[in-house]
Structures are given as structure tokens and as C-alpha cells.
């Protein structure tokens, strides 16, 4: 054969290579490929897991944001309610205070009136007493008839009061 081509040696090379290819496949290629595949699967799982967790956290975030939105509304409503209650309480307190003040004023007025009436009565009585004393002194010194007449008149007035 030209170029020293030898079919037997070609077959021997083939046999040699088939043994080598099989050996390398089972000893090196397949275990390493399996390991690489396992690692890819491991990272794919982790990726999937982290995606799922991310989705869950996004959902939680949305839920909390919604809750927070509601909380603001609730806070606003409570504040409004509290303000209304406070207004009501202030009004009630003011009304009560006004009523108390009115009562106190009325009582004070009544007390003042009573004191004035009493003072007037006392002064009237003192005046009358002084008048009677003065008249008695005059009567002693003047006509008895006129005196009697004056005394009768004074007594009538006293009775009338």
C-alpha cells in the first residue's frame, strides 16, 4: 500500500482509541459531567428558591403597604373622632361652667338682696326707734293730746309695716 498504509495497524489504532475513549468516558467525562449537572441543578434550585422567596416577600410587602395605607386612613378617622369628642367635652365643660357661674351669681345676688333688705329693715327700725324716742322726748315737753295723737298715728304705721 502507498505511504505504508496498513489496515491491520489502522484497526489496532482503532482498538486502542476505542479503549481510550471508553475509559475516559467512564472514568472522567461522565463523573465530571454528572457533577457539573448536579451543581447546575443545585444552583437552579437555589435560583428557583430565591425567586419564590422574592415573590413571597414582594407579596408580603404589597400586603403591608396596603395595611399601612389603611392604617393612615384609620389614624385620620380616629383623630377626627377624638377631635369631635374633645370639642364635645369642651362644650359640655363650658356649659357646666356657665351654669355654675350663673348659679353662683344668682346665689350672690340673692344673698346681696337679703342683706340689703335686712339692712333696710334695720335702718327703718332704727329710724323709727329714733323717731319714737324723739317724739317721746317732745311729748314730755309739749301738749299731751297732740302727743297721744302722734303716738297713735306712729303705732298704726308700725302695725301696718
Amino acid at each position: 500500500m502507498p505511504l505504508n498504509i496498513d489496515w491491520q495497524q489502522i484497526l489496532l489504532h482503532l482498538l486502542n482509541f476505542v479503549i481510550l475513549a471508553g475509559g475516559l468516558y467512564f472514568l472522567l467525562y461522565k463523573p465530571v459531567e454528572d457533577f457539573i449537572s448536579k451543581r447546575e441543578a443545585y444552583y437552579a434550585d437555589r435560583q428557583k428558591d430565591s425567586d419564590r422567596r422574592n415573590e413571597e416577600s414582594q407579596a408580603l410587602k404589597a400586603e403591608y403597604e396596603e395595611k399601612l395605607g389603611h392604617a393612615d386612613e384609620e389614624i385620620r378617622a380616629r383623630k377626627k373622632e377624638a377631635a369631635a369628642e374633645l370639642e364635645k367635652a369642651i362644650r359640655a365643660r363650658n356649659a357646666e361652667a356657665e351654669a355654675q357661674a350663673k348659679e353662683i351669681i344668682e346665689q350672690a345676688e340673692k344673698a346681696a338682696q337679703a342683706r340689703r333688705d335686712k339692712a333696710l329693715e334695720d335702718s327703718n327700725r332704727d329710724i323709727r326707734k329714733l323717731a319714737i324716742d324723739a317724739v317721746e322726748k317732745l311729748a314730755i315737753s309739749s301738749d299731751s293730746e297732740a302727743l297721744d295723737k302722734f303716738l297713735d298715728e306712729a303705732e298704726r304705721e308700725v302695725r301696718h309695716d
Binding site: 505504508n4 489496532l12 489504532h13 479503549i19 481510550l20 472514568l27 463523573p31 465530571v32
Partner: peptide, 28 residues
Amino acid sequence: DVNPGLIAAVVINATLLVIAALIRIFVI
């Protein structure tokens, strides 16, 4: 009697298989 290339191929084959076996047993 063969060409030296075939002997080289056999030597390489044996060496590679031994190295591959060692890697399979001790490293992988």
C-alpha cells in the same frame, strides 16, 4: 512489528487511563 506511532498511541492510552483512574478514585 508495527510503526512507532502505534507504540506511542499504546503508551499514551495506558498513561491516560492510569491518570484518569487516579483522578476518578482520589479527586472526583
